[in-house]
């Protein structure tokens, strides 16, 4: 399948500051891809380079399997992190304007607008000025404006920030619909819980670099396969020194143990029994949050990617 979007080692510096330092990622049809990272990691800069709002210093952006052409962006629905509307325009006029900017014809848009407004329960507001709408209603209009021209790809920058639960639900339905139709979504967030529930793939960046990328299930399996919950007493400081243990994260009554890739629980348990008094030892699937913290921590220690599949296809 031809990927809808590819970033190939794009870089952007502001003076001495490397905002984005060689980010690569791929968005396949029928998938939802999360661009994750802490605030200031370079998510918005990456997205702005995708949308041709800023030019990368190096690297390439490809849409639909070929180098990006300006009109490719007409097939993309973009929702920026900072978003707004013309306050004095009526809802319908505004949506027509946004649609026309994406190359749609006014005549063809009017039924689509009616349909969408009906779907988000704003039909009665079609002729009202944007400034008369509540914030939640304006968010719905922004959502409709993003998808009105039937884009093949949605690029959403922190789509859930500031949304009320109803609108969050609308967005989630929309994402699911795009996946089902064989279209795709790329969205950024710093809230790992959301990505955990929604994404098929993730690309985790920190300080402008990819620290972890790939299919979410595979990443979890990999991290989860070697993550254990240990309830124990004794000298817990010795846990980190036990052969096969990559990291020991101290907890109230024991520790979370991350084992080395080639180590297994069965191998490590006898050694643990020698070191401390073990009350409980069981396998645990990590939350994305933990993977994130670990990957970011690792990358800061090694100064680069954590040795995972950096650019998985």
């Amino acid at each position: 399948m031809t990927p809808l979007l590819e970033l190939d080692a794009v870089r952007k510096s502001y003076g001495d500051f490397r905002a984005v330092d060689g980010v690569s990622l791929t968005v396949e049809p029928g998938s939802i891809c999360g661009l994750l990272g802490p605030n200031g990691a370079g998510k918005t800069t990456s997205i702005r380079m995708i949308m041709d709002i800023i030019a990368p210093d190096a690297g390439e952006v490809r849409f639909f399997g070929r180098p990006r052409q300006r009109d490719d962006l007409l097939r993309v629905g973009y929702l920026p992190e900072e978003r707004g509307l013309y306050r004095k325009m009526t809802v319908t006029d505004h949506l027509v304007f946004l649609g026309r900017l994406h190359g749609a014809k006014k005549r063809r848009m009017v039924p689509a607008i009616e349909e969408w407004l009906d779907k988000v329960e704003l039909s009665e507001w079609a002729g009202k000025k944007v400034e008369e709408l509540s914030k939640g209603m304006q968010q719905k209009i922004q959502l409709v404006g993003t998808v009105l021209h039937k884009p093949d790809l949605l690029v959403l920058d922190e789509p859930f920030s500031g949304l009320d639960p109803i609108n969050q639900g609308l967005f989630k339905d929309l994402l699911a619909e795009y996946r089902r139709d064989g279209r795709a979504v790329l969205f950024s967030t710093h809230i790992m819980e959301q990505a955990d529930k929604l994404c098929d793939r993730i690309c985790l960046i920190s300080r402008g670099r990819v620290v972890l990328a790939g299919e979410l299930k595979a990443i979890k399996r990999r991290f989860g396969g070697n993550s254990y919950r240990l309830v124990a007493s004794g000298n817990l400081d010795r846990l980190a020194a036990v052969p096969g243990v990559a990291r020991a994260i101290a907890q109230d009554d024991g520790a979370r143990l991350l084992l080395e890739d080639d180590a297994s629980g069965a191998e490590v348990l006898p050694r643990l029994l020698e070191a401390v008094t073990v009350h409980e030892f069981r396998s645990e699937e990590p939350e994305l949050e933990e993977i994130f913290i670990q990957a970011v921590g690792d990358s800061e220690r090694t100064g680069g990617a954590a040795g995972e599949e950096r650019h998985a296809r």
Binding site: M51, D52, I53, R70, L73, L74, V76, Y78, L79, P80, E81, E82, R83, G84, L85, Y86, R87, L98, L101, H102, Q142, G145
Partner: peptide
């Protein structure tokens, strides 16, 4: 200024240079 402060410009510049 209105386009900038209302942030509509972010949406617009993705399709208009």
């Amino acid at each position: 200024i209105e386009e900038k402060s209302s942030r509509i410009v972010e949406v617009v510049v993705s399709t208009v240079r």
